[in-house]
Write a protein that binds this DNA or RNA. Structure first.
Lengths: 349, 349
DNA sequence: CTGTTAGCGCTTTCAT
DNA sequence: ATGAAAGCGCTAACAG
């Protein structure tokens, strides 16, 4: 059990007394070793050793310095999903790398969707926040602004006066769907959830504007752009909405799509994971890819390589690096918004 | 850029003055709302709103309370590897879940293998530490002890007076290798790295005691136990040592093993990822599994299900939960050390 | 190179 | 139900 009041651990004052120096000399020994003569330094460190002094107390130091040297990462509105999503993990990895380089700690904020989330954000001892893509109406966004600390948002929502690190999802979606929907009569889309309720369904006439996750919304807009470019009315396009980003769920929805009377002949998915689910459903339904049905993914993950998926390449890791750099200072650096189309064998064009 | 001195954010004293109450009343409004009359409460909150006061400063609060309500997680001696390992991510997910439930923050410690790691650990504003499995000679272990804060170690090393959450790796390895090595003439092992240098090589006569990662050492011991049980001299057993836990690296090493004159007919791997690499190498070398060569994995991940791997089932997520519970109070709970053998089609017995 | 002073923003203790 | 005093452990700013 961690007691509310943790065990006393010895103070700088005690170390100074034992070493026969002033508190400031002891302090300098830790914070600016150069300002202290080697002899004194030794004496102080020895006294510390003797007392089992673990070094300056981090909380006291933060209070006095006005900085915690810790970055807060808000990972989605559901912590559980965050770690199941390899792209979120890649992003986290990029953020963590920059923190390590700069000697910053990285605090993961336990956002659960409950009412206490705001309080936790306000109570986080961090200098700045990075927000992993979330919904326009996510209440933590307001809580973060209230802290008046620097923020960088990944993906969305775009906030006035807040740096946004993102690729152009609409343009990328338009480009990939142009390949997916080429020479297609009845194309379909496999989408991420539209809002934090995370409903799962299949429908036509899904208005992109309904989607409160900006990334999802922009991709739907891009798919719609591509459909219109090809003269396909968007209202004809079947959209499967998954509650989470998973192959199994996409497979189940694709089952439904393929079983229906309409003979869908193209599916653009929002992740390689989803596309994999679609491929599996196709196999079971005896549809040849890309002859009967073309499929596209998103992310260019190992799955895409293995299964020959035409997909959108982007580096979530780089984007994580860019977010951390932007918020800790040093500029987002290049390539944070880079994306490209990788053509493989899952599309006809 | 984050300035060293962050922007003033308004203090409780200012709020109190504006609300026309004492500082303590303002403080109670946040920390013990019940102790303040609803009217006063409203007045204080309104003053806070007006001043844009974001709530009590976390560092000041921590200093005064003597507790940060944050848990520190030491994720391996190389942050980069940690996120590439799905098992480490599952563990992290379990720890994060408990933190979220308890309203604790979770600080990931940016361990890089450099000399500053100790300083970072000492500088971490956390109440307690959870250590993801590391090597006996990892210097952060000493740094953690020096902080005099509660610690729980996952996997190893075992430290006097420190709670260890782990399965019995030796027993599990013996059990799985008994299946892998059954009716085998020249079995082999695919191992995790032996120490933090992470050398990659193929050798015989690898002494388990050489391995400084306790988990790796114990598994090697278990494999050796199984070999001895079956009357196979351990010195004959080929051991492929991977630098990291990855399918591609295991595949490369397996290539080397299968190309050699010795006709290896069984490989026990330390992860399903490694086993997958072995399976791929077998395919390319035209070796039938399990007829020509039996293969076992470890972890019972989706990979194992998909490829029909005989493997060791354990829940890293549960172990993460157990570690967090143990260190934050509440007991590790059941099933933290549960493991079992899952028999599938990759072994003959 | 070393020391003195002051105070970071908050909450515990003990009053009223 | 509210308030005054004290101090958590440290370091910036300024001497000497």
């Amino acid at each position: 059990v961690v007691p509310d009041q943790l065990p006393r651990r010895g103070t700088l004052a005690q170390v100074a007394r034992l070493a026969g120096v002033s508190v400031m000399t002891a302090s300098y020994t830790y914070s600016r070793p150069g300002r202290v003569s080697p002899t004194t330094r030794q004496r102080v460190l020895q006294a510390a050793e003797q007392l089992g002094y673990p070094g300056p107390d981090p909380s006291a130091r933060s209070l006095r310095r006005g900085s915690t040297r810790t970055l807060g990462l808000i990972l989605g509105e559901r912590l559980t999903y965050a770690f199941e999503d390899p792209q979120a993990v890649a992003f986290l990895s990029g953020v963590a790398q920059v923190c390590a380089e700069r000697g910053y700690g990285l605090t993961l904020l336990p956002i659960t969707g409950s009412a206490e989330d705001g309080a936790r954000v306000r109570a986080a001892a961090v200098d700045a926040f990075v927000v992993w893509t979330t919904a326009d109406d996510d209440p933590v966004v307001e809580a973060i602004r209230a802290t008046q600390r620097p923020v960088v948002v990944h993906g969305g929502p775009a906030l006035a006066g807040v740096t946004l690190v993102s690729i152009d999802n609409r343009a990328a979606a338009r480009a990939i769907a142009t390949l997916a929907f080429a020479s297609s009569q009845s194309p379909a889309v496999m989408s991420f959830p539209l809002d934090r309720r995370r409903a799962s369904f299949i429908a036509t006439g899904v208005e992109p504007a309904e989607a409160l996750f900006p990334v999802t919304r922009q991709r739907l807009e891009g798919y719609r752009d591509a459909a219109q470019d090809l003269g396909i009315p968007w209202t004809n396009v079947v959209v499967g909405v998954c509650a989470t980003n998973s192959a199994t769920e996409a497979e189940a929805l694709a089952d439904g799509m393929l079983a229906d009377g309409v003979s869908i002949d193209a599916i653009a998915a929002m992740s390689d994971q989803q596309a994999l689910g679609v491929l599996r459903a196709c196999k079971r339904h005896g549809r040849a890819v890309p002859a009967d049905l073309s499929v596209t993914g998103w992310d260019d993950s190992v799955v895409a390589v293995e299964w020959g998926l035409t997909t959108v390449a982007q580096s979530l890791r780089e984007q994580g690096v860019a977010c951390a750099r932007a918020v800790l200072g040093g500029g987002p650096g290049p390539s944070a918004d880079a994306w490209s189309i990788v053509r493989r064998q899952s599309t006809r064009s």
